[in-house]
Design a protein around this nucleic acid. Structure first.
Length: 415
RNA sequence: GGAGAGUUGGCUGAGUGGUCGAAAGCGCCUCCCUGCUAAGGAGGUAUAUGGGUAACUGUAUCGAGGGUUCGAAUCCCUCACUCUCCGCCA
């Protein structure tokens, strides 16, 4: 959520800044809501002040046994008028709140212009890619079964078995150990979340269709960012406890509404996938560095797995609703001869902390914290990358990356 | 699932219809005293938000939301959460 005071004073420049995200701020609507709000609020509050006075006069008169007929009349007039004005004000406040909740975060000034991922800016790349097109993970192993999953649940699910299932688990363990080494405290969190939490991190109210909703009105998490960030919902954090670094491994559930026909084959885009998430809650002055650090934490995992990747900075059109600045890490997939997103690391500045009310107690004042998060990493896609990049066509085996060997009792997976 | 108790400021905890944003204590801050420390004394110390250039000032907030009332921390209803007991259960 943007600072409403800031919005009042800088509507035009905010509108300009948001255009790069493809969002058109409706200043007229905002101004008319604000003007109505202001005049009605002033009226309501002065009527409330009057009520207070009249009520206490009434009480005193009653106590002295004085006649209260005239006072009663005044009170009735006040009460009717107050009710009328309150009824006018209430929906305006609701609308204003709604309006604010649907405005995206301001993009960082460094954000490249562009409308889709083709305009993302390549920052760096790491590792050598094998130029030769390779088999895809479904072709390589039969221990990933999407047809079986379709019988169990439907499309966009998978069943893993045997050594692939173990490799999948080893990746999770490896990633959590990496996070631990980098100073992130591990959490185990609910995979079901309420509206308040989802509003805090920005999935609601605008992106409900991306989520699986339960019959009791709650939702399955689409990322561990939601529970991890909301660990600090409505909290004031002592300056000494900053920066906070937390991690969790969770399944993520996404409806993938609107992505029909996209990435339909294999594990790339699933309704359910595992992810290790890294979250930091930091002082505003540290957030830029914290994002760099978190990005590096995620990159290191790929380096240790010896998987080639590139880092891109998202352009305005590709930048998420809540994010101010995002770097995606994209891993090389030989079957697609493309880099594919495997981690998304973002600085949300004070956007989430305003919504979730996460504050830092500075020496003598309270300020909104900055929140940073990123995948470290998406496990399913890492599994694909390992399978495809470590496949030995001659021997028809998947070699186990050195970094994972201590988690497994085998060095290769025959196919 | 059943029965009961509870939720008040940074903390402990009083307050069952008005003078209560809320006693008292602790903690914290400023000052005074005392040649260190400790003890003692005086004052201050919630949050959000509106109006105003400002000084200043209005309003809201006692778990959340409704209601009763001229007036609600206090009475009523609904919900959430915590605790105790019973049942069930990994």
């Amino acid at each position: 959520m943007l600072d409403i005071k800031y919005l009042r004073q800088n509507a035009e420049s905010i509108k300009q800044a948001l255009l790069i995200k493809g969002f058109e701020l409706d200043i007229n609507t905002f101004n008319s809501l604000e003007n109505n709000r202001k005049s009605l609020q002033v009226e309501v509050e002065s009527l409330q002040a009057e009520r207070k006075e009249l009520s206490s006069a009434f009480g005193q008169a009653k106590a002295k046994g004085e006649d209260v007929d005239e006072l009663s009349k005044k009170i009735e007039i006040n009460s009717n008028l107050l009710k009328e004005k309150e009824d006018e004000l209430k929906p305006i406040l609701v609308n204003l709140e709604q309006f604010l909740l649907e405005i995206p975060n301001l993009p960082d000034p460094s954000t490249p212009e562009g409308s889709s991922d083709i305009d993302n800016k390549i920052i760096r790349n790491w590792g050598d890619i094998n130029k030769k097109k390779g088999l895809d993970h479904l072709e390589i192993t039969s221990e990933i079964d999407t047809e079986l999953a379709a019988i169990l649940a439907g499309s966009r699910f998978s069943v893993l078995s045997g050594k692939i299932a173990k490799l999948h688990r080893a990746l999770i363990q490896f990633m959590l150990d990496e996070a631990d080494e980098n100073g992130y405290e591990e959490y185990y969190v609910p995979f079901i979340t309420n509206k308040d939490s989802l509003t805090g991190t920005g999935q609601l109210p605008k992106f409900e269709e991306d989520l699986f909703k339960l019959t009791d009105g709650r939702y399955l998490i689409s990322t561990a960012e939601i529970p991890l960030t909301n660990l600090f919902n409505k909290k004031t954090i002592d300056l000494n406890d900053i920066p906070i670094k937390v991690t969790a491994h969770t399944p993520c559930f996404r409806s993938e509404a609107g992505s029909y026909g996209k990435d339909t084959r294999g594990l790339i885009r699933q309704h359910q996938f595992e992810k290790v998430e890294l979250v930091q809650v930091v002082h505003p002055e540290q957030s830029e560095n914290a994002l760099e650090e978190l990005l590096l934490n995620a990159e290191t995992i790929l380096q240790k797995l010896n998987l080639p990747y590139q880092v891109v900075q998202l352009c305005g059109g590709d930048l998420g609703f809540s994010s101010s600045m995002t770097f995606d890490i994209e891993v090389w997939l030989p079957s697609q001869e493309k880099y594919r997103e495997i981690s998304s690391c973002s600085n949300f500045t004070d956007f989430q902390s305003r919504r979730a009310n996460i504050k830092i107690k500075d020496e003598n004042s309270k300020i909104f914290a900055h929140t940073i998060n990123g995948s470290g990493l998406a496990v399913g896609r890492t599994l694909i990358a390992v399978i495809e990049n470590y496949y030995d066509e001659v021997d028809k085996v998947i070699n186990i990356p050195d970094a994972l060997k201590k988690y497994l009792t085998f060095d290769t997976i025959s196919t």
